[in-house]
């Protein structure tokens, strides 16, 4: 089904009704969704118990946050707005016993992909706040700056992970807010950085990553927005023993991210949040997506597809990965 603003606002209307009803009928204690952000072309999470606040809920091509991240820290029964990738993270959290399915009411959003404003900024040579309007009709994105108007294709402006998304319509939901959408199916266009890296020698790849992580601030935004990183105490905060220096320096920065990726293997759903939030533009998805593909290639495992599957690292087959062992 192709995207239209009208269909989208239908969906938004339905969401507001559903969310309000859920609170009114006492079916949930709170709603987690999106409301307009305080910046242009942005939204912000709305976590509320207030019926009236449901009027502020939005669905648009800028609902970037993976809201499942809040689930392990939120008490009570929760009504949560979930795009495809978010629903996979929710499923993964259910598999990991981090949330109970019966405590959730999943308001599923059949997603048509999200617009990466930083790509738009680069394309039109303007900053976010200088861009007057970004709108989508069908597969065309129209960007207005003053009187100038430019059109772009999906593969130019959608988030890389959206281009490669395999499950835009949640498989796990209580109500689906619109008609199912199909994947954009432009994985190849989203793999620029990965391909670039694959063409390098091993030494070049390592040097590349060493250089990238020199500017890591160790703000841990990548970890803290990641639904798969829910540890009460992360290994970076351990002091006995101290696994790595708790300061922003190489090679500890790189080591942190290596371990983080190894820890979220089989739970990362390629939601893209870590890369999006990194304040210093480290191309983190080139790591997370690589891991995503490795897990798929070795064990035909895709995280968060259904609640029945056993989590990757708690399961095994007797005859697998045998060439590993010598």
């Amino acid at each position: 089904m192709s995207y239209s603003a009208a269909k989208n606002s239908q969906m938004q209307k339905k969401l507001r009704q559903e969310a309000k009803a859920l609170l009114e009928q006492g079916k949930v204690d709170c709603i987690i969704g999106y409301e307009p952000g305080s910046l242009k072309h942005a939204t912000t999470p709305l976590i509320t118990k207030d019926k009236a606040a449901t009027e502020r809920l939005v669905i648009n091509p800028f609902i970037v946050n993976n809201l499942s991240n809040f689930l392990p820290y939120t008490k009570g029964r929760i009504g949560i707005v979930a795009k495809g990738c978010d629903s996979r993270s929710i499923v993964s959290l259910i598999q990991d016993n981090k949330v109970k399915r019966e405590d959730l009411f999943i308001l599923g959003v059949p997603c048509s992909g999200l617009i990466d404003v930083s790509k738009v900024e680069a394309l039109v040579g303007k900053y976010r706040d200088e861009i007057d309007d970004i709108s989508r009709q069908g597969d065309i994105i129209t960007v207005k700056v003053g009187a100038a108007k430019k059109e772009f294709s999906l593969s130019q402006v959608m988030f890389d992970n959206c281009l490669a998304c395999e499950l835009p319509t949640p498989a796990e939901y209580d109500v689906l807010l619109g008609e199912p959408t199909s994947p954009i199916g432009a994985a190849a266009e989203s793999a620029g950085k990965l391909d670039e890296l694959k063409a390098m020698t091993a030494a070049q790849r390592w040097a590349f990553w060493q250089n990238e992580f020199r500017r890591c601030t160790r703000c841990y935004a990548c970890r803290n927005v990641c639904p798969a990183c829910y540890c009460k105490r992360c290994f970076v905060d351990e002091t006995e023993p101290q696994w790595l220096a708790p300061m922003p320096q190489e090679p500890d920065n790189l080591m942190f991210q290596i371990i983080r990726n190894l820890h979220v293997s089989g739970r990362c759903t390629d939601c893209g949040e870590c890369e999006r939030t990194c304040p210093v533009n480290i191309p983190l998805r080139a790591l997370t997506r690589d891991m995503y593909d490795i897990v798929d290639e070795l064990f035909e495992f895709k995280s968060g597809m259904d609640t029945k599957t056993q989590p990757l690292l708690t399961a095994y087959e007797v005859d697998e990965a045998e060439d590993l062992v010598k």
Partner: peptide, 13 residues
């Protein structure tokens, strides 16, 4: 504070 994820962005920067 509900939506804050306790990262270091707003303070370190």
């Amino acid at each position: 504070s509900a939506k804050c994820v306790s990262c270091g962005v707003c303070t370190l920067l």
